[in-house]
């Protein structure tokens, strides 16, 4: 792995799984990177819900635990 690649990617825990994502993304950028509709999901970073407006300013950092959830069928 080259140094350039290493500095371009950080590892986070995304929905319970370790995953490399580009460094320097905001949460909004992460959702875009993951092809997720920002209006259809709720995002939690390190157990704190991050609301729509704050997602732009919240940078994803190495080691973050991020949950992206939505509604599914249930009783």
């Amino acid at each position: 792995m080259s140094e350039a690649t290493a500095s371009d990617e950080i590892e986070v825990t995304l929905n319970g799984e370790a995953r490399g994502v580009p460094a320097g993304l905001s949460l909004t950028g992460l959702l875009e990177h993951l092809d997720q509709d920002p209006a259809a999901v709720v995002v939690e970073r390190n157990r704190e819900i991050v609301r729509g407006d704050d997602r732009d300013e919240t940078e994803v950092r190495a080691g973050d635990e991020i949950e992206i959830v939505h509604f599914v069928g249930g009783g």
């Binding site: 929905n15 997720q36 509709d37 999901v41 709720v42 992206i68 959830v69 939505h70 509604f71 009783g75």
Partner: peptide
């Protein structure tokens, strides 16, 4: 009607959300 909160399957291409 009731709905459940679950993780998005980040590898699935189709939208499983019920909100639509």
């Amino acid at each position: 009607v009731t709905v459940a909160v679950r993780r998005v399957d980040l590898d699935a291409s189709d939208d499983a959300s019920i909100l639509g």
